[in-house]
Design a protein around this nucleic acid. Structure first.
Length: 841
RNA sequence: GGUCGCCUAGCUCAGCUGGUUAGAGCGCCUGCUUCACACGCAGGAGGUCGUAGGUUCGAGUCCUACGGCGACCACCA
């Protein structure tokens, strides 16, 4: 029996219970059996260190809409949750703790340190998952994964060995981006380039055996200590006479050659380039071309090495100052100018990157990028919004090898063993006891771990049990969809496509939906330093999860960022409250009418026809069923195409301005006159049920709560249960005639209201207004009149048009809607209004 | 330097494949303690759709140029 419900919507009172209950009932659990229609999606695993922010909230809301929708459509639906071990991020958290305790990881030792991180993870990791559970995200928690789980680690190992065996992984000395603070190599993607105000120093290098001086320009004078040549363009006439000569490197007094190479642009600077193969990528390559020696003058701590002579041990920036000063006193500093240049920084700690030559592991990306380009080209993977495909191609066509080794302790250790006897490398699926080449037992595992993105690149299939041929893999792979932010298109999406194709021979997902960034109400990026961060947990506590979801989804149109502020949450809560109160009205009327809770409606996926007790189906029923039908069509299409804002907008309009404003208002009148109540109730409740179902993927808590209060079957039949019970478009249920007639009714009511307002008449002493319509409209309006009068607050009469009146044609081809006011007491107003009306013609 | 996106009411934005009077939410103004809801109801004001051309019977919607804003990529000393 429906109970009395509170006047105001207070989601805090029921949300936590439902979140718990859904999990207890196992509603989110997917079946491993392949039952035909399946839908699967793997969550972008948040960092274990992570705390839920608005970006997650949007991402999860979008996931949840799609997933709940598919589930209700009867798909065997899997949303697989989990977290990422997040190499650097996590290691840094624990290292900070150690620092606070006055120790560090080196003192602790590798094994103890790893143990310590695991302890941290058990204790404070995965906060975000708990938050997700509270927010009702409908993941299958029984399949939760972590990138360092044994199974996933095996997948990582398998992939590494396979790639190595196929010669797609190699180890070598190359220029890498070194972060002196994180103390590891990082990939190109992990460096951010920032336009910085720097300087350009012009330094004179004396030519040996001549008084001439070559002037080179540099932005990093400290690297000159490691110069092993200067380069001029062979075509550059200015320096032709110096070909084959040498210069004396100032400060170091080392003789270095003048080399010819097109890398020197005669138009830039002085046309002379200093070459430091150890500390610049261009120079490194030039060094290789000209077989130049490499002199490393800066070490991993960003301090000058012994090779820097008198500058040894200085920090690189202190060295710079000293060197510039020394050059100046030697009279070799020709000039200094301001210069803007992009400076590479570590994405994580903002420290300026030091390009260093170092021995690292790389993935040869060109061969695996090619098929990854093809699957997007031929549509096997669809990227939405489509314009991102171009960005994807840009990157993939110009892709460079991927540095995958990190000098960290937290992560997947590289499965390679170095032999101390023959110095060869053994890469193996199982831990080897001896060198595969010479049999020596003196082998040691490579100390490095893999880039975090290496393991997350396997996520869609490693989580399903790959490399084993599991039932889950057969049922859910390839996954149906990936929803993520465009900011990790390269980091993650592209790598998953490459590795997915390489490992499984199939695409990892069939579609990628890239959503936008969430910004604050001023369009600013949310950041802790700006203090404009909105904590999702705060606002869900205050406004309700459904309202927050709705606020985000309403703004979630593909391609544009979402600006969100308190106003958005307030209006979304008002919407939830509106639904709440509409329900309250229905429940109250049910009680006074003695209506029993009803059995849940159609389990088929099509909308039923309105029910009638007599020969005449009330207009409002025919109309609302038709509108509902169109609403279902629109919402389904919107969700299918990831147009979440459209789904939200459509429902908003249907619920508020059709169901509440008109339908319920008209039904109130029906309940007054007490005839044919049975049919009225069954229609109303059917529409109400369908409305809740349509809303459920977007607003799960509110709809579940209301559903449980009103449905006879009660708690055993959750609205979210996996049955094919989501309303879908029914071509037979659209009733254009009813919509048309309702439009007329609405315009009559509007007109009547205007009359009343304009004449400033007290409804109680209302003069007669006369509505005159042609015959078809007249019969249509029969029986509606009382309702119209009530809504309009005017007393009206309906006559046929041949009774002859003045009026206004409102633009309906079949009907003339003519309004005449016969005011006995207010002739003046009457004629004034009539004139105005006539002007409308 | 390259690529992409955005510029529509005071604010935040919808407007899919070009088609009747350009929409929503919030804000603002007017009137309502109407027995579901003031987190409400009924009305209203407010836009030459960044600028200039072009294609078309017809353009916010397609094309070109320009201006402003933003994002991403990038080894020019």
């Amino acid at each position: 029996m429906p109970t009395q419900i509170d006047k105001v919507y207070e989601p805090q009172r029921f949300e936590p219970a439902w979140a718990q209950w859904w999990i207890e009932k196992g509603i989110f659990k997917a079946s491993a059996k392949n039952t035909g229609r399946t839908f699967s999606i793997a969550i972008p695993p948040p960092n274990v260190t992570g705390v839920l922010h608005m970006g997650h909230m949007l991402n999860h809301a979008e996931h949840d809409v799609v997933v709940r929708w598919r589930r209700m459509l009867g798909y065997n639906t899997l949303w697989l949750p989990g977290t990422d071990h997040a190499g650097i991020a996590t290691q840094m958290v624990v290292e900070r703790q150690l620092a606070a305790e006055g120790t560090n990881r080196y003192q602790l030792g590798r094994e103890a340190f790893e143990k310590r991180v695991w302890e941290w993870k058990a204790q404070s990791g995965g906060t975000i998952l708990k938050q997700m559970i509270r927010l009702g995200t409908s993941c299958d928690w029984s399949r939760e994964r972590f990138t360092l789980d044994p199974g996933l680690s095996r997948a990582v190992r398998e992939t590494f060995v396979r790639l190595y065996e196929k010669d797609l992984i190699y180890r070598g000395e190359y220029m890498v981006n070194w972060c002196p603070s994180c103390f590891t190599a990082i990939s190109d993607l992990e460096t951010v380039h920032e336009e910085t105000q720097g300087r350009m120093w012009h330094i004179a290098y004396p030519v040996v055996g001549s008084d001439e001086k070559l002037v080179v320009a540099t932005t990093r004078p400290e690297t000159m200590l490691g110069d092993t040549a200067v380069v001029v363009n062979p075509e550059d006439g200015r320096y032709r006479h110096l070909h084959g000569k040498t210069v004396m490197l100032p400060l170091m007094n080392r003789e270095i050659p003048i080399v010819l190479d097109s890398m020197a642009d005669p138009k830039f600077g002085t046309g002379v380039v200093k070459v430091t193969p150890a500390h610049d990528l261009n120079d490194f390559e030039a060094g290789k071309r000209h077989k130049l020696p490499t002199v490393k003058v800066i070490n991993e701590h960003a301090k000058m090495t012994a090779a820097a002579g008198p500058y040894a041990e200085l920090d690189r920036f202190d060295a710079r100052k000293r060197i510039v000063a020394d050059l100046e006193s030697l009279g070799l500093l020709v000039k200094t100018e301001e210069h803007r240049l992009p400076l590479g920084r570590c994405q994580r700690c903002r420290t300026p990157i030091e390009p260093l030559v170092s021995k690292q592991w790389f993935v040869k990306t060109k061969p695996i990028a090619e098929p990854a380009i093809r699957v997007v080209e031929d549509g096997r993977i669809q990227i939405i919004p489509e314009h991102w495909t171009k960005t994807y191609y840009e990157w993939m066509y110009n892709i460079r090898d991927w540095c995958i080794s990190r000098q960290l302790w937290w992560g997947h250790r590289i499965p390679a063993w170095h032999c101390q006897a023959c110095h060869q490398v053994t890469v193996s699926r199982e831990d080897p006891t001896q060198c595969a080449h010479c049999g020596s037992e003196k082998i040691e595992q490579d100390p490095d771990v893999l880039d975090t993105w290496f393991s997350s690149g396997l996520w869609p299939f490693s989580t399903l049990g790959w490399p084993d041929k599991t039932e889950d893999l057969a049922t859910f792979y390839p996954t149906s969809l990936l929803i993520t932010g465009f900011d990790i298109l390269f980091f993650w999406v592209a790598r998953m496509i490459m590795l997915g194709l390489e490992c499984t021979g199939d695409v990892p997902f069939r579609a990628v939906y890239l959503h936008s960034m969430v910004r604050d109400a001023e369009g600013q990026k949310m950041s802790k330093t700006k203090g404009n961060v909105i904590d999702p947990l705060d606002v869900t506590e205050k406004y309700g999860t459904d309202a927050v979801r709705m606020a985000l989804l309403r703004g979630a149109s593909p391609g544009t960022d979402i600006s969100i502020g308190i106003d958005n949450f307030e209006s979304a809560r008002a919407f939830a409250n509106k639904i709440w109160n509409a329900s309250r009205l229905i429940f109250m009327k049910m009680e006074t009418s003695g209506v029993e809770p009803w059995a849940p409606g159609a389990m088929n996926c099509c909308l039923p026809e309105p029910i009638t007790d007599s020969l005449v189906t009330p207009l409002e029923d025919r109309w609302i069923f038709s509108r509902l039908n169109r609403c279902a069509e629109s919402v389904n299409r919107a969700v299918e195409n990831y147009r979440f804002h459209e789904a939200a907008q459509t429902l908003w309009h249907f619920v508020w301005h059709e169901f509440c404003d008109w339908y319920l208002e008209l039904k109130k009148l029906r309940f007054e006159d007490n005839t044919g109540l049975n049919a009225h109730w069954r229609n109303l409740l059917t529409v109400y049920e369908m409305m809740l179902r349509l809303l459920h993927p977007l607003m799960p808590f509110l709809t579940e709560e209301l559903w449980q209060r009103v449905a006879e079957a009660g708690a055993d039949r959750p609205i979210s249960i996996a049955l094919a019970n989501y309303p879908q478009y029914n071509p037979d249920a659209s009733d254009a005639q009813a919509e048309y007639e309702m439009e007329i009714l609405q315009s009559i009511v509007t007109a009547a209201r205007e009359l009343r307002a304009d004449m400033k008449i007290d409804p109680k002493q209302m003069m007669d207004g006369v509505l005159v319509v042609r015959e078809p409209a007249r019969s249509m309006l029969d029986g509606q009149l009382a309702g119209i009068e009530r809504i309009a607050g005017a007393k009206l009469d309906v006559r046929a048009s041949d009774e002859g009146v003045d009026g206004v044609k409102r633009g309906f081809p079949e009907f003339d809607l003519i309004i005449r006011v016969s005011a006995s007491q207010a002739e003046a107003q009457r004629s004034r209004i009539q004139k105005e009306i006539e002007q409308l013609e």
